[in-house]
Design a protein around this nucleic acid. Sequence first.
DNA 1: CCTATAATTCGCCATCTAACGAATTATAAC
DNA 2: GTTATAATTCGTTAGATGGCGAATTATAGG
Lengths: 122, 122
Amino acid sequence: MRRFLDITKALADESRVRALLALRGGELCVCQLIDLLGLAPSTVSKHMAILIQAGLILSRKDGRWHYCRLPGEEEAEPAVRAALDWLQAALGGCPVAKQDMKRLKEIRRKEKEEVSSCCYRN
Amino acid sequence: MRRFLDITKALADESRVRALLALRGGELCVCQLIDLLGLAPSTVSKHMAILIQAGLILSRKDGRWHYCRLPGEEEAEPAVRAALDWLQAALGGCPVAKQDMKRLKEIRRKEKEEVSSCCYRN
DNA sequence: CCTATAATTCGCCATCTAACGAATTATAAC
DNA sequence: GTTATAATTCGTTAGATGGCGAATTATAGG
C-alpha cells in the first residue's frame, strides 16, 4: 500500500507528470528539466527525488550532470511499469506533452551548440 | 491533463483506495463505508465526492441511502478503466484489502439482521 | 407532527505540499 | 587556487488536504 501511494502521490502533480512524459524521448539532465518546466532548480531537484523514491525514474551521475531516465521494461517493478504504461496511454498525445516535446528539441539543440563551442570536447 | 490529475489525486489517499477496493465486492452505502473506514461521516462524504468527481465511482440514491459502486466495463472512460485495473493488479490481494473484505462480510451481515428485524420489510 | 437515521455542507484546525531564495557541495575549466 | 556551473539541502511561506464536530437537509417510521 505504501509503495502504491508513493506512486500515486508522485503522479498527482503536473510538473512531475510533464517530466515523466518528457523522459520518453530519452534521458535528460536536471538542468534541462529546469529549463523545460520553468521552475527553480531546488524545486525540480525535489520533484526528481520524489519520482526516484517512487521508482518511476532512474538516475546516474556524470561529472557535474545528474541524468534522469525512465526504467526499461525489465528494470521497473510491475506496479511502476503499469503506472508508466497507463500514463502513456492517458496523456501520451495530450497538448501539454506535444508542446513540451517541441520545446525539448530546442533544448537539446541548445545543448549541442554549447558542446560544440566548448573547445575541450572537440 | 486536468482529468488525469483528478484521478491520480483521488488515488493518492489510503482511505479512498480502501473504499475502491471494498467496492469490488459490490455496491455499498455511505454508512457502510463509514463503518469500514472508521472515519467521521463528513470525512467519508467528502472522500466519496472526490472519487465521484474523478469518475472512479458512480452513485445512486435510494430513500435515505446513498449507494456507491464501481463503474462497469462500458461505463468508465478509458483512463478511469485503466486506473481501476491498475489498482486491482497492484493492491487486489494486499493485506489491507483482505482484512477489509473480512470486515465487510460482518458489515453486510449486520445489515441483513437489521433488515430482517424490521417489521415493515417482512 | 415528532423523532430517528443517512448524508451533506460548513467552519475550523493540524499537517502536508509546492514553490522560492540563500547557502552549500561537487565537479570542471582556467 | 580561483571561478563557473550543476545540483542539493535548508528555511520559509502560501495554499491545499484530511480530519473533526456542529448545523442542516431529506427521508422513513411512529
